[in-house]
Design a protein around this nucleic acid. Sequence first.
DNA 1: ATTAAAAGTTTGATTAGTCAAACTTATTTG
DNA 2: CAAATAAGTTTGACTAATCAAACTTTTAAT
Lengths: 221, 221
Amino acid sequence: MATETVENYIKALYALCRESPSGEAGVVRLAQELGVTKGTATSMIKRLSLARLVKAEPYSGIALTAKGNKIALDVLRRHRVIETFLVRTLNLDWADVHEEAERLEHALSARILDRLDEFLGRPSTDPHGDPIPDAAGNVSETRSKPLAKCRARERVCIVRIMDQNRAFLKFVAESGLKPGANLVVHSVSTQGNSLTVQAVRGKPVTLSHSAAGKILVKIIS
Amino acid sequence: MATETVENYIKALYALCRESPSGEAGVVRLAQELGVTKGTATSMIKRLSLARLVKAEPYSGIALTAKGNKIALDVLRRHRVIETFLVRTLNLDWADVHEEAERLEHALSARILDRLDEFLGRPSTDPHGDPIPDAAGNVSETRSKPLAKCRARERVCIVRIMDQNRAFLKFVAESGLKPGANLVVHSVSTQGNSLTVQAVRGKPVTLSHSAAGKILVKIIS
DNA sequence: ATTAAAAGTTTGATTAGTCAAACTTATTTG
DNA sequence: CAAATAAGTTTGACTAATCAAACTTTTAAT
Ligand SMILES: [Mn+2]
Ligand SMILES: [Mn+2]
Ligand SMILES: [Mn+2]
Ligand SMILES: [Mn+2]
């Protein structure tokens, strides 16, 4: 079994590779993400490479191997099942659960994870709308687009919040913009740097372009 | 915060001090308990001593300080709340939960622990009858004696099983001797090396002296 | 095409935790 | 009591994870 530290590196690498157009991660960003120096990250990459969890040439990009990807999805599954449990069963604030899950994700056996998953009714997404990979590592992401790309008068349903920041999550919840909420795009500013939406039976909310970019929605037919 | 390793040493020391008449623990037993060499245990004791978690003179007994005791009770609380959750909510086998809790006990924050405790209705004992310390570190142990010390025809209620061994726990459950079970002491062999008990509406079970010594009971008035 | 900045690597040191094996002190036991 | 045994300690070595600081390579600007 991978150590807690290795699992954290793998998970961070997975996220960085996702969001990079080249599909590869860099050492500096990785170090930033994990709060370590770049030298530390470099030496860990060497170890992961030796363990065949990543593919990396000196002075070039880092990518996960199939084996590394498997671990990433497994950790992600544990993380998201735990978040779901913490919110649904223990009533923790959805803005707090990410950090809690960050520690717990490394301590659950496969057996407990499965029991927890069963107890929760095999949820397909966590409280933030993040898809939960199944035990085999399959992820089914709902087709969606950023709210920032919507046009006026579109009716949409929020599917996912792409940011773990506590303050942002608090704001999103305050504004009634949690996953599942239906809303109408009221107006879009001409410069495209903000837009106003209104939840059903809610007050209108104006969002900056960057905030609206982190909220994924699907169009209601 | 103490590391996982330190918490394990402290917890083991707590148990060893409990069961020793002198109230002090030795390095060899400690090492055995944790599956490390005695040299390793010695060096850890030095560190714990420096951190004021134990009081220890070279070549003499080890005792927990008040600070160490506090940590031990805290870990014990987490361990037992988790075991209760695993059995009651996730339906895990009571023989398996000890090992699972052994890892989880180090990953729960105070907040999650409290929510879990609340969710379970603030239980006072875990599935094995082990008392759960409260958040302040108070333990209330039910007055009890070993089943081995009972005489024929006594009617007793099982309060606690003093052994985490899986095979033993399986046997205890099979025999209907879980905490809460009421039974009558049928007969006691003259040599005192075995005794036969019968649960209400159960078959008679014969126990060795050593097995009966690990089952704590209280007399039913 | 130089050169400055950014990205990545290396080196030497540190801490936590561990082992094997030699060693010392305390306890038993004949 | 002396010798054997058990308990406890010390030493030297190792792995995982980290940092600071010097160094090298790549990339971006001028
Ligand atoms: Mn983590
Ligand atoms: Mn999430
Ligand atoms: Mn433990
Ligand atoms: Mn227990």
